[in-house]
Amino acid sequence: MKKIITLEVNGDLHEVAVAVHQTLLEVLRDKLGLTGTKRGCAVGTCGVCTVIIDGKAMLACLLLAVECQGRSITTIEGISSADELHPVQQAFVDQGAIQCGFCTPGIVMTSKALLDKTPRPDDEQIREALAGTFCRCTGHIKIMEAVKTASQYERAEKKSD
């Protein structure tokens, strides 16, 4: 059973023919070529497929693409501008909060969703948000530092605007 749906991804509208049993993750990666969103466990525990839908961090592996019509989807490809990284991305680079990098897109999107809602999160709020993501290379200490740095960058950016 196929359906033609319109998906709003990173501000662009895409008309795609999808099978109803395809997940948003499969459509993003295989149909739209947006391979920044990674496929990890595929059962909702690792968080590497995190995308932001209507302002909330969600798991693309557990959403049917047909259910995402009419919702605003942001993927890792959609957060930086043409020549500048998003403050969260910059903070991850500056803090070295990356090892192999596979979990990073999901963690960056999770952090962005957190900071959009809570610009000055405390440690517990950061921990709670990151609890849905896994970094299997290293710990989450540098990642937490990066989220705090990103919060500072974003506030500095807002001040200079």
Partner: peptide, 9 residues
């Protein structure tokens, strides 16, 4: 319950 990601869904 679970994580924020899952509770969001």
């Amino acid at each position: 319950i679970a994580s924020q990601h899952i509770r969001n869904m």
